[in-house]
């Protein structure tokens, strides 16, 4: 059965696209046929993060409007088997995203392309693109930074997920939504400058999927157009791998949430 997953956050710049790319790549690495769709019509960026920006011919809006079929528009990833990218269009016409149109694309990915997972990379905000990315979802990943505006917006999005998805409208209850806390810095948490995982979880009251540490590897990955999960030596890459395993039901302890303990010397004289 095909699962549709929305990666959302409300606030921009918290790591939705980075997470979508990592999650989709992680699922494909485990053998699941996966498509990641960029819903940010007008501000396409997933193609850059996935490193396929020069291979874009058709996009999501082309498929919806019938200018291309799904097979023509899907970009097959060069590094990872089973992984496909459906880019957003660069035109500013957001009205192109209709409920029927998006449903048609998702149906084609499910029935014709036999996808196991469809990852919908939501745009920021709570406008049409974000609502469309979430509407057909079976599950949600809420990406949040440990920072007041991001947490507040995430709470807003969790409320929208509870009422504005197809499952909710059909009276099938809330879709499962899980928290992915990104750009986490255990050092700053310990010194009381940053909200802790426990703080954010207490406020948002949803299950924790993972904690991704603030890491140079994320910028390196986007610089080179290779999802950070492929950087298996990096902390962020490993944290995303763990999150994918948890996403699939594994029980793993959370890494990278505590400060590496310094010795007595370091504590007395360290910065």
């Amino acid at each position: 059965m095909t699962k549709i997953v929305v990666v959302t956050s409300g606030k921009g710049g918290v790591g939705k696209t980075t997470t979508s790319a990592a999650l989709a790549t992680g699922l494909a690495l485990r053998g699941f046929k996966t498509t990641v769709i960029d819903f940010d019509v007008g501000l396409r960026n997933l193609d850059l993060i996935m490193g396929c920006e020069r291979r874009v011919v058709y996009d999501l809006v082309n498929v919806i409007s019938g200018d291309a079929n799904i097979k023509q528009a899907l970009i097959k990833d060069k590094k990872v088997d089973n992984l496909f990218i459906l880019p957003a269009s660069q035109t500013r016409d957001k009205d192109a995203l209709t409920t029927e149109g998006v449903e048609g694309v998702l149906n084609a990915l499910r029935d014709d392309m036999k996808m196991d997972y469809i990852i919908c990379d939501s745009p920021a905000g709570i406008e049409k693109g974000a609502l469309m990315a979430a509407y057909f979802a079976d599950e949600a990943v809420v990406v949040t930074n440990p920072e007041v505006s991001s947490v507040r917006d995430s709470d807003r999005i969790i409320g929208i997920l509870a009422s504005k998805t197809r499952h909710a409208e059909q009276g099938e209850g809330d879709i499962p939504a899980r928290l992915l806390l990104t750009r986490y810095s255990p050092e700053r948490v310990e010194s009381g400058q940053m909200l802790s995982v426990e703080d954010v979880q207490e406020i948002l009251a949803i299950e924790l999927l993972g904690v991704i540490p603030e890491s140079q590897a994320v910028l390196n990955a986007s610089n080179s157009g290779s999802p950070v999960i492929l950087d298996i030596d990096s902390d962020a890459g490993q944290a995303y791998s763990d999150a994918v395993a948890r996403f699939l039901g594994d029980q793993l302890p959370h890494r990278f949430v505590n400060v590496n303990k310094k010795g007595l010397f370091g504590r007395l004289f360290g910065g």
Partner: peptide
Amino acid sequence: QSSASVAKERLQIIVARERSTRG
């Protein structure tokens, strides 16, 4: 008082308020 605990308190208040009118 650490800035993180101030943040937490402020968030708890605003989130509770916004939830009461949600939907």
